[in-house]
């Protein structure tokens, strides 16, 4: 009984779309999550950290976030997620919303 922390980095595809400011989106309700996006200057990679009570979905998380990064061309930021059993569809939705918030 402990929280699972999943950490990985995604290399950008070289398009180097960077964030101008940080953004927060979502509530950790049942089947939902919160996303924090923060620009970082150290390197161009996207560092990802997911905290979740659900084990065994590491590969799925990776697919969803990789797809988001590929779709948006983002680089040089950290993505921090607190999850409470959100479906991949909700994860993708919140990531998009957080990005819209950061760009809005």
């Amino acid at each position: 009984m402990s929280l699972e922390t999943i950490e990985f980095t995604v290399a950008g595809d070289g398009r180097s779309v960077s964030l101008s400011r940080r953004a927060h989106c979502g509530v950790v309700g049942s089947g939902d999550l919160e996303v924090l996006l923060e620009p970082k200057t150290a390197d161009a990679a996207v560092s990802v950290r997911i905290v979740t009570p659900v084990k065994g979905f590491d590969a799925l998380w990776k697919r969803v976030v990789e797809h988001f990064v590929a779709e948006t061309g983002l680089s040089g930021l950290s993505i921090d997620i607190n999850d409470n059993n959100a479906s991949p569809a909700i994860v993708a939705l919140r990531l998009r919303q957080a990005l819209a918030e950061a760009q809005g």
């Binding site: 402990s2 929280l3 607190n82 059993n85």
Partner: peptide
């Protein structure tokens, strides 16, 4: 407390 119990947390 939630971390210790393995429950989802919010920032």
């Amino acid at each position: 407390h939630l971390v210790a119990l393995g429950e989802a947390v919010e920032n």
